[in-house]
């Protein structure tokens, strides 16, 4: 007699259970994808691209850090620029005052007083700190840049060996610092010190005129030197701006690349979720109906 092939009751039930378990696992995965927008297992589903996403994430994080650090640097450079402008203006104002005054001895003490005020003003500007760091102290940003002595001379307290340097991008460093011992500052302060400490009333007109010319010349030289420093600083700020603009663009690109590898099409996942729900519904229906369809009900 030829045997009858049957489907084992246990196996039939097992198959249905396995189908339900698979569908439930897929539903869980799809619902996770819909809620997070990301693949559940990037390494398994992204295959070769998973390594790339780690590299992109590393570059993205470094890029973000450069952006933050560069924003701080830009602020520091702008503060430096503003301080130099203020120092230059103070020096120019004094110079204007000096050349416009009469040669008479009666008002020369005003020149002295103005020189002393200007020294204080410039010293204050040179001692500007940004985020707790002195801007003009070279690499010794913890040292107050200048102190004004009793004889109206000034002492530079900062570092004399190097220039502030920032890492603005991968492999790109930029020297940006302006030191308080720069000739621009020292020339202006030296001229002012002479004006502030010399007994101008004791000079005859010729000597005063000669001194005035010397001081004007010296201060002009200082102002020019500071203008040149500002021009260099401006170039570097422009370079920093270009770097930041590029980094902002790259940040978006990195973000998109990561999403491309790690992200899922949420609409597709939602449709898939719906499909699995229908499939599960059908499986449960079949299971229920099959359990009712038994020979036992007919005997």
């Amino acid at each position: 007699m030829i045997g009858i092939s049957t489907v084992a009751s246990f196996q039939k039930n097992y198959d249905l259970r396995r189908n339900v378990a698979q569908a439930t696992a897929e539903m869980n995965k799809a619902s996770m994808e819909v809620s997070t927008g990301l693949k559940q297992d990037v390494y398994a589903e992204g295959r070769g691209a998973a390594g790339e996403t780690l590299n992109i994430r590393a570059r993205m994080e470094a890029n973000d850090s450069y952006l933050q650090a560069n924003a701080l640097l830009e602020g520091r450079m702008n503060a430096t620029d503003e301080s130099i402008t203020a120092i230059r203006e103070a020096a120019s104002d004094f110079m204007t005052f000096l050349v416009s005054g009469s040669l008479s001895g009666e008002n020369r003490d005003v020149v002295t007083a103005q020189a002393q005020i200007t020294i204080e003003e410039i010293a204050n500007k040179m001692n500007t700190s940004y985020a707790g760091s002195f801007l003009f102290s070279g690499l010794e940003t913890g040292a107050k840049t200048v102190t004004v002595n009793a004889d109206w001379s000034t002492t530079y307290n900062g570092d004399t060996t190097g220039q502030l340097t920032a890492q603005i991008d991968e492999g790109i460093s930029m020297k940006y610092g302006v030191r308080g011992d720069n000739s621009g500052f020292t020339d202006i302060l030296a001229a002012l010190q002479v004006a502030a400490s010399t007994d101008l009333d004791a000079l005859d007109d010729t000597a005063f005129e000669a001194l005035r010319e010397t001081l004007v010349e010296q201060m002009n030289g200082g102002i020019e030197a500071l203008t040149a420093e500002q021009a260099t600083l401006g170039d570097k700020l422009a370079m920093l701006d270009r770097t930041v603009t590029r980094q902002e663009g790259v940040a978006n690109l990195y973000n998109e690349s990561v999403l491309e590898i790690e992200g899922v099409d949420v609409n597709e996942a939602a449709v898939r979720l719906q499909g699995i729900q229908i499939q599960l519904d059908a499986t449960f229906n079949v299971t229920a109906r099959l359990s009712e369809m038994t020979f036992l009900n007919y005997i």
Binding site: A58, E61, S65, A69, L72, G132
Partner: peptide
């Protein structure tokens, strides 16, 4: 973990590098 978990040696080295970038621009902080 997964890439977004930021617990892998790769992610933690990236964080270290970021902190060093910040330090290299604010060394006295």
């Amino acid at each position: 973990g997964q890439p977004e978990d930021s617990v892998s040696p790769s992610a933690l080295l990236s964080e270290l590098k970021s902190s060093l970038i910040t330090l290299s621009n604010s060394p006295d902080q």
